[in-house]
Amino acid sequence: MAIRTVHCLILALLGVVIVHVTVLFLLPLYSERDAWSRLSALGAPLQTVAIERPSGGVAIRDNDPLFRSAACRFDLAAGPVHIMASDGAPFWSVSVYNRWGQNIYSFNDRITISRDIDLLLASPAQMIALRQDLPPAYEQSILVEVEDPLGIAVVRGFRPDDSYAAIIDRFLGSLRCTPQ
């Protein structure tokens, strides 16, 4: 009887370990609370959405309250996606995330001469085609190769105080994600 109890105990602990590892690895795949899912609820793909909601809530956790940000979800299956915004914030930065919220590529306003955001996202296959024959419109663009077709582009702008509200609104409002 005692041996049987010990067997059960070992089995239970082994079960805990198996469930722990399984849940850990499946959680990102099935999470309905991740950034992608929350942004899906706010807008269609390629539609620019503000991450700080007018109601005061924030779609993404852990945002800096001195920053305002906007995002668009993209899908490269239909072709490259062009991301543009005109300069405005005293400091801005851009990040490209994959569907799982992992940061693939990031840059800030020091990288560009014009200080405008001009980014072309393409899959590895699309990138080969682009490199062979780059349309003149994209000569100034930053080309970013993205492995996963699904992803999120986020633009963050520094808003030192309320006097910058209009400037930052215009900056984030100028963000466009367009399929090519």
């Binding site: 899912s37 799982w100 940061n103």
Partner: peptide, 19 residues
């Protein structure tokens, strides 16, 4: 894997190295 699961659960989009 713990960090990956945590960002999926909490809808975090962490700052990139250039940010």
């Amino acid at each position: 894997p713990y960090s990956k699961a945590a960002i999926a659960r909490d809808a975090v989009l962490p700052l990139g190295p250039a940010e």
